[in-house]
Design a protein around this nucleic acid. Sequence first.
DNA 1: GAATTATGACTGACTAGTCAGTCATTGTCA
DNA 2: TGACAATGACTGACTAGTCAGTCATAATTC
Lengths: 231, 231
Amino acid sequence: MTKKPTKAATRSAASAKGNVPVTSEEAAAPASSRAARAAERRAAIVEAALEEFIARGFAATRLDDIAKRAGVAKGTIYLHFKDKESMFEELVRIVIVPVVERLTTLPPPTGSVRDLVEAFATNFLKEVANTRRGDLVRLIVAEGPRFPAVADFYYREVVSRGIAGMRALIELGIARGEIREKNLARFPQILVAPAMIAVIWQSLFARHAPLDAQEMLRVHLDLIFGERRTT
Amino acid sequence: MTKKPTKAATRSAASAKGNVPVTSEEAAAPASSRAARAAERRAAIVEAALEEFIARGFAATRLDDIAKRAGVAKGTIYLHFKDKESMFEELVRIVIVPVVERLTTLPPPTGSVRDLVEAFATNFLKEVANTRRGDLVRLIVAEGPRFPAVADFYYREVVSRGIAGMRALIELGIARGEIREKNLARFPQILVAPAMIAVIWQSLFARHAPLDAQEMLRVHLDLIFGERRTT
DNA sequence: GAATTATGACTGACTAGTCAGTCATTGTCA
DNA sequence: TGACAATGACTGACTAGTCAGTCATAATTC
């Protein structure tokens, strides 16, 4: 079979029209242009949908707008997603899964518990609070009650894991004498609360009163672990 | 025409059906039944709208549903509110203003700062967290970005006041030596964060993992003021 | 019975989802 | 290798339905 020629042609055609700003160093990838373009389009749709849903909420988002933003016809969306609702649900999964993976893989077994938590916090700020991801959290809070599937998923994949992880850290901190308040292990939510508040604050009140999240989290850790810096 | 009976009928019908739990000591008011009924209807509409908006969000809420729930024709809504959007905005004001008034009037100049804060927290749980009001907070978080007017109002009337009040309490606590962490005054958000988290948790994850908010807040206060109870 | 208030049928704008048709890509065959 | 056929990704006009807002009519009040 002669497969080479087609490939070359495909290639140039794709790159000529495709100012698709998504990923892509598929330079090495031998991806057949057909499949590659499909993947690109899907990615563009996901990106556009995320943007629109965050900006307008589920109900007020028009699929026409998503299509336009993605540079795709409306029908194309339905080649990738069953309907608006399941698109939203898949979207949340698609965006969250990699973040969870990255955050759970991180823990470098360094020194004190405080350092661990602080590193985690810094990372959280960089990866979530100051990103589109932060708005996604707000979106989940907003739409959760109307999308039990989303709320469930988020609880299972993010919240319960996060709480469990934090609890483990707290217990370690207590065991090592870094944390005085024993009851904290019963409510790891307390450890995370200011971070969540920071996320919400940024998207609602930042323009009224900017919040130095990094510094706030540090103060909060001082509260839990006792002072430390020269401050 | 026989008008008396109608009136009586109307009256009783209204009170029979109308378990409108809102205001109303119009007992003393010489309010012509005309004005009184109008007020009742308005209250019913507000109540119904609140319920629907909380359950479905702004965009997905139908005025027909609000009307039906309020026991009113759709046209009647337009006798009280300009349109859906301004109804939503007014709604937030109508519900929030009395709460703010009640909470700001409270401070009984009792003993320790910790007692003050704890009383406030308990009150907050009773008045907000376990009420429709709590869901309203979530609704504001959800719709805030699309309703700058609402976000502004909420910031001005609730957040900035709350932050200021908390800061005053914290400074008092520091002055009296009850609070060790001086930097806390720079981020009163930390003091409030768990309470907000509790509100959000209740409406999103309560069914996955119930949260004893009261107890969580107490632990948080222990963290700030130092242990206390026999626990 | 005039004035005020309430009603709900109606309208028009808008949108989720569909589907017949197009055409670039891929596979096949000489 | 070049021509032809098959494929299926993609399109966008279209349908069916929804819903905010209106207004002629009806009910109520004074």
